[in-house]
Each structure stands twice: as C-alpha cells, then as structure tokens.
Amino acid sequence: MRMSRTALLPVALLLLCAIPLASAATWALVVLLVPVLVAAWVLTVGVDVDDDAITVRSLIGRRRVPWSHLAGIRVAPRGDLWLVTTEATEVRLPVLRVRDLPRLAAVSGGRIPSPGPAD
C-alpha cells in the first residue's frame, strides 16, 4: 500500500515554481532539493504486507514486523494507525488511516480482524 501517485502533481507544480527562484542566484539552487526530496518521499513511503510480516517503508529506511511480534493496531486520535508489537513498541503506518483498516484486514489474510460497525 503506497501513497497515491497523484501526490506528485503538486510536487511538479512546486518544482515549476522553484525554477525561477533557483535561477536567480547560484546559492538558490538548493531550493530545487525540496521538490526532489518530496518526490522521493512520495515514491518511497508505504506499507508492504506479506505472509511473514508487515514492512513499513520510509524515506530513510524500513522496519519489518513479523506477524508473531504483532500485538495489535492502535488508532490515534487523529486517525493515524500504529502497529503495537509484543515488545511494547509502536510503529506508525505512514500512509494508512482508519478508513484503510478494512483493506489492511483483507490483505493481512485474516491476521488483522476486519473492523465491524460501531455499536
């Protein structure tokens, strides 16, 4: 599960807006790094679910949580999802929100229960 590639459209617009500023002075070329880093983040960040584990990918690395180490999922007040491990650590799922819980439950092969309607 990755971030939608349509998120690259604002990045392209940011790049277009940064080009005049970057061409004004040599030191301003650093401004072009911002859209490049944001594009790299959009293309990299995500969550991979397979038979052995959940892998959380970020811009600077990844964290693999085996199913045997997963204690549950915590929903933060803003709707962010966090994996809770048996070691009492938490790993944020960067592109997933509460609305994505049914899809996450489906790709987990039943390891994560599908949320039902609120009583």
Rank of each mutant, 00 (worst) to 15 (best):
M1G: 12
R2C: 00
S4N: 15
S4F: 05
R5L: 15
A7C: 13
A7F: 14
L9V: 15
A12N: 06
L15E: 02
L16C: 13
C17T: 08
C17K: 03
L21K: 06
L21F: 14
A22Y: 04
A22R: 04
A22G: 10
S23W: 15
A24K: 12
W27T: 13
W27Q: 15
L29R: 14
V31N: 06
L32H: 09
V34W: 09
V34L: 14
P35C: 00
P35K: 05
V36C: 11
V36S: 08
V36P: 07
L37G: 12
V38G: 01
A39E: 05
W41A: 08
V42Q: 03
V45K: 04
V45G: 02
V45W: 01
V45Q: 00
V47N: 01
D48K: 08
V49P: 02
V49T: 03
D50K: 13
D52M: 05
A53H: 14
I54D: 00
T55V: 14
T55Y: 06
V56P: 04
V56M: 08
V56A: 05
R57W: 04
R57L: 05
S58C: 00
L59K: 10
G61E: 06
R62S: 15
R62T: 10
W67N: 03
W67D: 01
S68C: 09
H69F: 07
L70C: 11
A71M: 09
G72Q: 07
I73D: 03
I73V: 15
A76V: 09
A76W: 14
P77L: 03
R78K: 11
G79I: 07
D80I: 08
L81F: 07
L83W: 03
T85W: 04
T86Q: 11
E87K: 15
A88E: 10
R92S: 06
R92H: 06
R92V: 10
V95G: 01
L96F: 02
R97T: 11
V98K: 09
R99A: 13
L101I: 06
P102K: 10
R103A: 13
R103E: 10
A106P: 09
S108V: 12
I112F: 01
P113W: 00
S114A: 15
G116W: 05
P117I: 02
A118K: 15
A118R: 15
